[in-house]
Every structure is written in structure tokens, then in C-alpha cells.
Design a protein around this nucleic acid. Structure first.
Length: 269
DNA sequence: ATGCCGGGCGAAGCCCGA
């Protein structure tokens, strides 16, 4: 069994104690991180390494920044999303790792927010999503066990939002954003959480403002998308709300899934 | 309600997030 998690930490520097606590408690084999807000040289690789994790980092000063943590060694395949050499925002990193039970490809994604919708940020988001669809489609041809996870900044449907009316017109809920997200599903990717849970009110983000956490005014915008080969192995998936309730919390909370890889059966036999 | 919170930057107050 391999446990793969994702967490937008909103500054790895500010969140390091919380992240170390969660790694010890949840012990994922892989953790995808977003919004590091630091360059690679300032990433706390030593503290994280002390817990047994390798790290691959695509960093940036002040904004963005993504990483992959893994108990097994990582071979980095992409440090940026293909398709636009001029895009300098650190929002994508992809690596392959050899787990005890077989090869696994993972990507950590920090998809652009897109607000305000009348600025150039929404076109940037939609162009980024088109690039993601193209790259994700190309990956399907490899027929590998792959997990593309992270902060997608998309509310897929009404059930993923405490008040759909309040989000009308927002870039996270715009029809174009949801259409582009669905395009990934139509290509063959599976939303790991929704494959196993149909209940509403399962959120991954609560705003710091207006008592959103206390009122459970959340949205589900962090997702783990599985290739068909990964979806066939999906054993469990969930959202861990506990970190959102702690002191100095990120506004996002970790999501996770577990895959029963081929070697598990052999190990059991 | 385009910002009531929180982080970065940098040393006050603005930019940004979702």
C-alpha cells in the first residue's frame, strides 16, 4: 500500500512545525506540497530529511513554489509545466519514484487562482489548464500509475461548496474553470476522493476571514487525479481536517489516497 | 463587502491569496 497526500501549506517556513507534526502522525509515503513561498535553497530539506523524506523542489521567492516529498528516491521529470517557456511561476513539478510495490509517477500542482476575473489572471489560469490537459493527456500514453495532485483552485460542483451562490462568478467556480477541470476527467483521470465519497460538505479549504473555519464555510479545491492505472488500484481516500484546526494553521488541509500496488499482492502471497 | 485574516517583504504599509 502506498499513501499519497497533498497539502497547500501557505508558506513552508511559517508551517514547518505543523508539516513535521503531520508527517510524523500521518506518515504518507509521498506528500505533494504547494505554496512554499521560498526558493529551493531555503527549503527546509534537513528537517524534513530527518523524518526520512527525500525532497524535489521547484521554488520561487515570495509566491508559489511546489515540492514532492517521498520516502523513496525521486527522479525529477519536469520542473515546470510544459507548453510555455515564458511562464516563470513555480507551479508544477513531476517525478517518478520506485516504491516497494512498483513505479509511480506523481506531480505537485499549484493551479493559478484566476481572480480577479476581469484581469489577465483568468486567461492565465485557463491557458495553464489547457497546458495541463495537453500534458496530462500525453502522460496517459505511458499507461503508468500516476497521481496528479495539488491545489487545483477549482470547485468542481455545487456539492463541493458551502454556498454556490456566494461563489457565483468567482474564478474558482466559473463555468470555464469547471469545464476545464472536467476535461481532465473526460480524458480518463479519476478524482480519487469523489470515486469513493459522494457526501457533500467535504472541504479542503476554509478562508482565514469571517470565521469560515468555525462556521464550516469551506470549499473542496484540492484534488488527487489518478491515471486509469492508478484508479484501478485505489483503496481509500480522505480529507484530514485536523491540521486546519491547529494553531498557526494553513487555510488548506491535507488530502490523501492509498493505492494497492501490484507488489502488495505478491508480498501477501 | 475586493477584504474583516495571514504571509512575505522589510521595517510601514502594500501585494497577494481564494
Amino acid at each position: 500500500m502506498v499513501k499519497i497526500a497533498s497539502w497547500n501549506v501557505n508558506s513552508i517556513k511559517a508551517r514547518l512545525p505543523n508539516v513535521l507534526d503531520w508527517l510524523k502522525e500521518a506518515s504518507p509515503d509521498i506528500l505533494l506540497l504547494q505554496e512554499l513561498k521560498c526558493v529551493e535553497e531555503n527549503f527546509p530539506a534537513l528537517e524534513i530529511g530527518d523524518l526520512g523524506y527525500n525532497a524535489a523542489v521547484s521554488g520561487q521567492k515570495t509566491y508559489n513554489g511546489v515540492a514532492i516529498l517521498s520516502k523513496t528516491p525521486l527522479e525529477v521529470e519536469q520542473r515546470a509545466l510544459p507548453g510555455d517557456e515564458s511562464d516563470e511561476q513555480a507551479r508544477y513539478i513531476e517525478a517518478v519514484t520506485q516504491t516497494d510495490a512498483g513505479p509511480l509517477r506523481v506531480a505537485s500542482i499549484y493551479l493559478p487562482n484566476g481572480n480577479p476575473v476581469d484581469s489577465d489572471k483568468l486567461p492565465y489560469k485557463l491557458a495553464w489548464m489547457a497546458r495541463l490537459e495537453a500534458h496530462a493527456s500525453a502522460l496517459l500514453a505511458l499507461e503508468e500509475v500516476s497521481v496528479l495532485g495539488g491545489d487545483y483552485n477549482v470547485i468542481p460542483s455545487d456539492e463541493d461548496c458551502y454556498d454556490a451562490v456566494a461563489w457565483e462568478g468567482d474564478a474558482l467556480y466559473r463555468p470555464e474553470s469547471r469545464t476545464a477541470f472536467r476535461a481532465l476527467l473526460y480524458r480518463g483521470y479519476t478524482d480519487a476522493f469523489r470515486a469513493l465519497h459522494n457526501e457533500p460538505g467535504a472541504y479542503t479549504f476554509w478562508d482565514y476571514q469571517r470565521g469560515a473555519w468555525q462556521k464550516d464555510n469551506g470549499i473542496r479545491i484540492d484534488h488527487l487525479l489518478l491515471s486509469p492505472q492508478a484508479a484501478d488500484l485505489l483503496a481509500d481516500a480522505g480529507i484530514d481536517r485536523k491540521p486546519r484546526g491547529k494553531e498557526k494553521a494553513s487555510d488548506h488541509t491535507p488530502i490523501w489516497c492509498s493505492l494497492t500496488l501490484a507488489g502488495d499482492a505478491k508480498a501477501a502471497a
